[in-house]
Every structure is written in C-alpha cells, then in structure tokens.
Design a protein around this nucleic acid. Structure first.
Lengths: 194, 194
DNA sequence: GACGTTAGTTATCGTCTGATACCTTGTCAA
DNA sequence: TTGACAAGGTATCAGACGATAACTAACGTC
C-alpha cells in the first residue's frame, strides 16, 4: 500500500532506530494484513510495504506468527485505550459510541481485528481476543453504568459494522434495496439505548 | 477431520457418482476451511479430508478459489433456506431466533461464513455476502413484521455470537469473569425484542 | 463382451514462501 | 581515527502449494 520512492541517487542511506523501524513495519503490516489476513499475506508483502528487505522483517520479529501477534496486540491495545479514555458520566453511552465511530474512521485496524477473530482457534490469538472482549464489556458497564444487555448490544452492533465494512456494504448500498436499508440503519445506530 | 481407513485388501474400488462426490468434497472442504480459512487451507488438506487425491479436487472445481466459492455459496444458500422456512406469525421473532440456534448447533458452517466475510473485498465473495445480508434482513422484516432496528439487532446479535464462537469464548467462560458474563448474556439473548 | 465414457490416480513442474547464513555500512563513543 | 555495535541487505535453501499432463480402471450400453 505505502509506495516507496525509487532508490534515486542513493545518498548515504538513512538508518532508523530500532523503535522507529518497529513502528513503521507494524504500520505497514497492519495495512497489508487488513486486506490479506494472516495466511493470505506474505512476509515479503509486509517488507515491500515497509520498504525494507523480507529477511529483515522476519528476523526482526522472529517469525511470521510473532509479527502478526505483535500487530494484533498493538491493535487491541489501541482499541482498549480508546474506550478506557471515555470518562464515566450521564452521557457515557454516546461517548462510548463516539469512540467506536473514531475507530471506524480508519477501518484498517478493525479489519485486522476481524481477521484475528476468525483465526481465534489459534491459542495466542484467541486468548488476546477473549481478553479484549471481556475488557470492553467490563469497560462499558463501568463507564456507562448500563446493563449487561446494553453492553452486549454495544459489542454486537460493533461486530455487525465491522462485518459490513469488511464486505464493503456501504460502498455497494448506493443502489438501494434491502442492503441500503440495513446499512443506513446500522450506521445511524438508532434504538441502541433500549 | 474425516479419517479415511487404510487401503486394506483394496477390493474393487467403489466409485461415486459426480454428484455424490461433489457433496462429499464440499463437506470435507467446509470442515477444513472452517479452521484454516481460505488462504490457510491447502487443496491437499481438502483432498485428504475427502479421501481423494489433491489433483482431483482441483480439477473437479477448476481452481481453489472456485472451490471456496462453491463451499461459500452452498453455506449461504443453506442459511437462507433455514430462515425462509420460518412462517410468518405472531411468534415469528422467536422462531427466527430458533432458526439461528439450529445453525449454531454445528458451528462449522458459520465459521466458514465468517472466513468469507473477512475476505469480502474479494469481489465474488463480497457480492454473495452482501446478497446474503440483504436477504436475511428482508426476510426478518417480512416474517416478523418487525422494525428495521429489530432486524438489524437480530443480525448484529448473530455476528456477535459467530465471533464469540470463533474465538472459543464459550469454552473459556467457565473460569468466570467478564467474559463469562458476556457469553451468558449473549447466549440467553435477553432483551432482544425491544 | 467389446467399447466409449467417466471417475480417479500418479508423476511432475514452476512458483511462492518463510527462514537462515553471511556480508555491508552507518553511527557513536573513546 | 578507529573500532565495535547495530541496522539492514544479498544470496540461498528446503518445503509447500496449485496446477497440468498423462495414465488407469470402473461403469453403462449396444
């Protein structure tokens, strides 16, 4: 996805610190994993997106599985951070919804999240996924003071939107029909505080 | 998954009709695609599960992508059939929920469904996925006479359960904690007719 | 019972992929 | 200035994978 400019004159090659490079590779990996998923993305895809060599990527993270886990971990941590930042209060429900809206503004991370979920039988991924669900569920209860049913509905609605974005429903809803009604209804999010 | 008995005495090899074999391979493919997804499953995995040779599987369906599409198509058709069989009436809502409960009794197909959803940017898969969503949404409205919000909540709740099963949340909820509360709340499905 | 058809196999190929080994070159401190 | 360390590349491999080609044998039909 990220287009790397050609070698061009090849001046004294800029070198990054380990932490800088790590973040950059994780960014690139997030981008390519979002479309291809774990098995459908090669370490070479990641390397090209990051503008480094393929062996460097795998040696940096040890193994491809470790790389994906690092990406997945970072994403779940970011998401949890977002929801943790919501302060308790009377309008906490709408602010929790707003936090999710912020996340959906860049669907890349959410796509990787969903890719991780569907390979959740992989122990390391599944464990992280379950912990994330449990944490957000608990956070919703804590911040909003709502019921368990409301917290469940919040998560359910989030999963529906993640899937609708994954199958590109919004882009194809312009033609009208039942899909358009569903997308409109899901995006406006009416009747969720019941 | 399906264990094939060893050659043993090798009597006159039973041959199946094309239709029989097709269904059997699709069954086997559904089983292995459920855990590995599209990219994470080889045609050899499918062949072994079906008890046939790998080249036969490929030639039978043309290409691996065609095979997955056939599996995905069959699953979406089965699911739609299930919901179409629900008759209209005053208790149609609970019967729609019951139809989903039937589906979840064997999570294999639902796992493949979710695998298809997350690679929904693939045009052929995405188109089928959107059509399936639109159809179920319309069916819910028609059979129950409910509101769009209720139909959306029905789908959302289904997606949440699909994900919770994918990450094996029910199996890990025994230890208690927030995850157990979420799973219990999601499985009992209280407060969904609001 | 011969024969075309169709279900299925074995052999094999070209490519992709993750990983390892080894080499090169900035960068920074003494 | 120099030398050690760390960033990053090149070369290469062994196995997996999808696909094709060519062959074999069961089945229905006349």
């Amino acid at each position: 996805m990220t287009i790397e400019e050609p070698p061009q004159a090849r001046g004294p090659v800029r070198r990054m610190s380990r932490e800088e490079r790590r973040e950059q590779i994780l960014d690139a990996a997030t981008s390519v994993f979002a479309t291809g998923g774990y098995a459908g993305t090669s370490t070479d895809d990641v390397a090209r997106a990051a503008g480094v060599s393929q062996p460097y990527v795998v040696r940096f993270f040890g193994t491809k599985a470790d790389l994906f886990l690092a990406v997945f971990d970072r994403i779940t941590a970011q998401i949890i951070d977002r929801f943790e930042a919501v302060a308790p209060g009377p309008d906490a429900k709408s602010r929790m919804a707003g936090a999710y809206t912020d996340l959906i503004a860049d669907p890349t991370s959410l796509k990787v999240l969903m890719h991780g979920f569907v390979i959740g039988s992989e122990p390391a991924i599944g464990a992280r996924a379950r912990a994330t669900f449990a944490r957000i569920f608990a956070l919703y209860l804590d911040r909003t003071g709502g019921t368990a049913e409301e917290a469940r509905n919040f998560l359910a609605h989030g999963m529906l939107l993640n899937v609708l974005f994954a199958i590109e429903a919004p882009q194809h809803a312009a033609t009208g029909g039942a899909l358009a009604d569903l997308v409109r209804c899901a995006l406006t999010g009416e009747g969720l505080d019941a």
